[in-house]
Measured scan of single mutants.
Amino acid sequence: SKDAAQYVYDEAQKGVTQVTVNGVTFKFDNWQKLLKYAQKLLN
């Protein structure tokens, strides 16, 4: 959902490398990768 994507995006902006959405945890090597993933979700 857009809300989940926005949440992931906001978390990535904080510099975190993992985020949990609806009980599913996504882990990334660095926050830039998390940010890229979030941007994909938002598009």
Rank of each mutant, 00 (worst) to 15 (best):
Lys2Tyr: 04
Tyr9Ser: 12
Asn30Asp: 08
Ala38Ser: 01
Asp29Asn: 12
Ala4Phe: 09
Gln18Val: 08
Leu35Met: 02
Val21Asn: 05
Gln6Ile: 06
Leu35Asp: 00
Val21Lys: 13
Trp31Asp: 00
Leu34Val: 01
Asp3Met: 10
Ala12Phe: 12
Ala5Lys: 03
Phe28Thr: 02
Val24Pro: 03
Leu42Arg: 01
Asn30Tyr: 08
Tyr7His: 15
Asn30Arg: 09
Gly23Cys: 12
Phe26Glu: 02
Gly23Trp: 14
Val16Glu: 04
Ser1Leu: 12
Trp31Val: 02
Gly23Met: 10
Gln39Ile: 06
Asn22Phe: 15
Leu42Gly: 00
Gln6Tyr: 04
Ala5Cys: 15
Thr25Ser: 09
Gln6Thr: 03
Ala5Pro: 15
Lys36Leu: 07
Gly15Met: 11
Lys33Glu: 06
Gln6Ser: 03
Lys14Ile: 13
Lys14Asn: 11
Phe26Cys: 14
Asp3Tyr: 03
Trp31Gln: 00
Gly15Val: 11
Ala4Glu: 09
Tyr37Ile: 07
Ala4His: 07
Lys27Trp: 14
Gln32Phe: 13
Glu11Val: 14
Lys40Glu: 03
Gly15Pro: 04
Gln13Thr: 10
Gln32Asn: 04
Phe28Asp: 01
Val24Asn: 09
Tyr37Cys: 10
Ala5Asp: 08
Tyr7Phe: 11
Lys36Met: 05
Asn30Ser: 09
Phe28Pro: 01
Gln13Leu: 12
Ala5His: 03
Lys40Pro: 00
Val24Arg: 06
Leu34Ile: 02
Lys40Tyr: 06
Tyr7Asp: 14
Asp10Pro: 08
Ser1Arg: 04
Ala5Ser: 06
Asp10Leu: 13
Thr25Asn: 04
Lys40Ala: 05
Tyr9Met: 09
Thr25His: 08
Asp10Cys: 15
Lys36Ser: 06
Val8Gln: 12
Ser1Phe: 12
Gln6Pro: 02
Val16Trp: 12
Lys33Val: 06
Gly23Glu: 06
Phe26Thr: 04
Val16Leu: 09
Gly15Thr: 14
Phe26Asn: 02
Gln39Tyr: 13
Gln6Asp: 14
Gly15Trp: 14
Val16Ser: 07
Asp29Pro: 13
Val8Leu: 11
Val19Ala: 05
Val21Leu: 03
Lys33Gly: 02
Thr17Ala: 08
Lys36Cys: 12
Asp10His: 05
Thr17Ser: 02
Trp31Asn: 00
Thr20Leu: 14
Leu42Ser: 01
Tyr37Lys: 02
Ala4Trp: 12
Glu11Lys: 12
Gln39Ala: 06
Leu34Tyr: 02
Leu34Ser: 00
Lys2Thr: 12
Lys27Arg: 13
Lys14His: 10
Val19Lys: 02
Tyr7Lys: 08
Val24Ala: 05
Gln6Ala: 05
Ala5Gly: 06
Tyr9Asn: 08
Ala4Leu: 08
Lys2Trp: 14
Asn22Ile: 15
Gln18Thr: 05
Asp3Asn: 09
Val16Pro: 11
Gln32Trp: 12
Lys2Phe: 12
Thr17Met: 07
Val8Ala: 06
Lys40Met: 11
Val16Tyr: 07
Leu34Lys: 00
Gln13Met: 10
Glu11Ser: 04
Ala5Val: 05
Ala38Asn: 00
Gln32Val: 07
Val19Glu: 01
Asn43His: 04
Lys27Ala: 15
Leu41Thr: 00
Phe28Lys: 02
Phe28Asn: 01
Val21Cys: 12
Glu11Tyr: 10
Lys14Phe: 11
Gly15Arg: 04
Glu11Trp: 15
Lys27Val: 15
Val24His: 03
Ala38Val: 12
Glu11His: 09
Gln32Lys: 07
Phe26Ile: 06
Thr17Phe: 13
Lys14Gly: 12
Thr17Gly: 07
Asn43Leu: 08
Lys33Asp: 06
Tyr9Trp: 15
Ala4Asn: 10
Gly15Gln: 08
Val24Thr: 03
Gln13Trp: 13
Ala38Thr: 02
Leu42Glu: 00
Asp29Arg: 12
Leu34Gly: 00
Asn43Gly: 03
Lys2Cys: 15
Glu11Pro: 11
Tyr37Ser: 01
Ala12Lys: 04
Thr20Arg: 11
Gln18Trp: 13
Gln39Gly: 02
Val19His: 06
Ser1Gly: 11
Ala5Glu: 08
Phe28Met: 06
Thr20Tyr: 04
Gln18His: 08
Gln13Lys: 08
Asn30Gln: 09
Asp29Val: 14
Leu41Phe: 03
Gly23Ser: 03
Ala12Asn: 06
Lys36Pro: 01
Ala12Val: 10
Thr17Arg: 03
Tyr7Val: 13
Leu42Pro: 00
Leu41Ser: 00
Lys40Val: 02
Ala38Cys: 15
Val19Asp: 02
Val19Leu: 13
Glu11Asp: 12
Ser1Pro: 13
Lys14Leu: 10
Phe28Glu: 01
Lys36Val: 07
Val19Trp: 14
Lys36Gln: 06
Trp31Glu: 00
Gln6Glu: 12
Gln39Phe: 12
Asp10Thr: 11
Lys33Ile: 08
Asn30Phe: 15
Phe28Arg: 01
Asn43Phe: 10
Gly23Thr: 11
Thr17Leu: 11
Lys40His: 05
Lys2Pro: 05
Tyr7Arg: 12
Asn43Cys: 15
Ser1Thr: 10
Leu41Gly: 00
Ala12Tyr: 08
Asn22Ala: 14
Val16Ile: 05
Thr20Pro: 06
Ser1Lys: 11
Lys40Gly: 02
Thr17Asp: 07
Gln18Asp: 03
Thr20Gln: 08
Gln13Ser: 08
Lys40Asn: 03
Asp29Trp: 15
Phe26Leu: 08
Gln6Leu: 10
Glu11Phe: 14
Asn30Val: 10
Trp31Met: 05
Asp29Glu: 09
Phe26Ser: 01
Asp3Arg: 05
Asn30Ala: 10
Asn43Met: 09
Leu42Trp: 08
Leu35Pro: 00
Tyr37Phe: 12
Asp3His: 06
Asn43Ala: 07
Asn43Pro: 01
Lys27Cys: 15
Thr20Trp: 14
Gln32Glu: 04
Val8His: 03
Thr20Gly: 05
Asn22Tyr: 15
Val21Gly: 02
Leu34His: 00
Asn43Ile: 05
Asp29Ile: 15
Asn43Ser: 05
Ser1Glu: 12
Tyr37Pro: 00
Val24Trp: 14
Leu42Met: 02
